[in-house]
């Protein structure tokens, strides 16, 4: 079965019909266009992260998860390391979090990525809509810069 062979995987999540919930998808689209000529980078966007993505992660040396956050202040950007979940996992077959996916890559495929980071943007609104809130809209350029810099660092580290 075809699997990701890229050194760095961008895994985005969101719903483009739920205003700021679509931020991850928008940033993934930006990254896909920005790094279209780079075979080292693979971009996957999903409305939901499901266990099957564990196989893609296991094939990658580093992973950058991108999502919105309903807990953070609107427009605030966070870039944090993510670690595989430990202990009993309360999972849904419809949706898994970044930690659960890393745990699948580790436990089932015995191949967790060397580095895993998660970039989030605080959501101002997740109501029905196809536009972003002003706070998120204003934060997008900085998020793009951060993604570019992060990928550059991840690729150098994995070279």
């Amino acid at each position: 079965m075809t699997q990701t062979k890229a050194r760095c995987l961008i895994l985005a999540c969101g719903n483009a019909l739920r205003s700021d919930d679509g931020t991850g998808l928008w940033l993934a689209q930006w990254a896909e266009e920005k790094f279209a000529d780079s075979p080292s980078i693979c971009v996957i966007s999903r409305q939901q992260w499901t266990p099957e993505l564990g196989a893609e992660i296991a094939q990658s040396q580093c992973v950058l998860f991108i999502d919105c956050s309903v807990d953070a202040a609107p427009g605030s950007i966070q870039l944090l390391p993510v670690h595989p979940a430990s202990g009993p996992q309360t999972v849904s077959t419809h949706h898994s979090g970044a930690s659960e996916l890393l745990a699948i890559a580790r436990d089932l495929y015995n191949s967790p990525p060397r580095t895993a980071l998660q970039l989030t943007i605080g959501a101002g609104s997740t109501e029905l809509g196809e536009t972003f809130s002003p706070a998120v809209q204003a934060a997008l350029p900085q998020a793009c810069q951060l993604i570019a810099a992060t990928l550059s660092g991840l690729l150098q580290a994995s070279a």
Binding site: P51, P88, Q89, T90, V91, T93, E100, A103, I104, D107, L108
Partner: peptide, 12 residues
Amino acid sequence: DPVKRNIFGVAE
């Protein structure tokens, strides 16, 4: 244990 009754519990 209901907490483990999922695909991860199966994988264990």
